[in-house]
Write a protein that binds this DNA or RNA. Structure first.
Length: 154
DNA sequence: AGATTGAGCGGCA
DNA sequence: TGCCGCTCAATCT
């Protein structure tokens, strides 16, 4: 389903009442998420707060009943990156070393992150650049900038 | 089962 | 800077 909140559209997918996929807040309706609904406005609000760095991903994961329906490898990568604190970044290579795999494999896994913001894949960057982002590098940049601004001194 | 493709990295000129 | 080779999970053929 798609939930509209504060002029943003957020795609949400559920399985047995567990959130299994979402989009970041978007200015136009995402495809493949069905129709507009007023259900789960509470969850949409949490995603919105994450987007504007007004809540920690850790707290959000506690509040939102969710499930990672992904391959074991992707799950391993996503769980690992939950250790990165707000406003900090690590490189694909760092993650790869810690998990005994390759940077490219890490990038591939993060590209498939079904729960962006909830699992902070935007905090993983390349060594000499921002790397990539499923919703575009510009989005990655603004999300990171907001986090750094809000959490730098905490 | 083999080939190709990345949200990468390090080395070398 | 630019290219080249290595890497490895996922996605083709």
């Amino acid at each position: 389903m798609i939930v509209e909140i504060d002029g943003y559209f957020i795609g949400l997918k559920f399985k047995d009442d567990y959130l299994v996929a979402n989009t970041i807040p978007l200015k136009s309706k995402p495809k493949g998420f069905g129709e507009l609904s007023d259900e789960y406005l509470d969850i949409a609000e949490i995603i919105l707060k994450l987007y504007f760095a007004k809540m920690s991903d850790k707290e959000a994961r506690k509040k939102v009943k969710h499930k990672l329906l992904v391959s074991p490898f992707i799950k391993k990568v996503l769980i690992f990156i939950t250790n990165i604190p707000m406003g900090k970044t690590v490189t694909y290579g760092d993650v790869a070393k810690a998990l005994n795999t390759s940077p490219r494999a890490v990038g591939r896994a993060l590209n498939k992150n079904p729960l962006p913001l909830l699992y902070p894949c935007h905090r993983v960057v390349a060594k000499d650049s921002l790397g990539g982002y499923a919703y575009g590098l510009e989005e990655k940049k603004v999300i990171l900038d907001r986090e750094i601004k809000n959490f730098k001194y905490k």
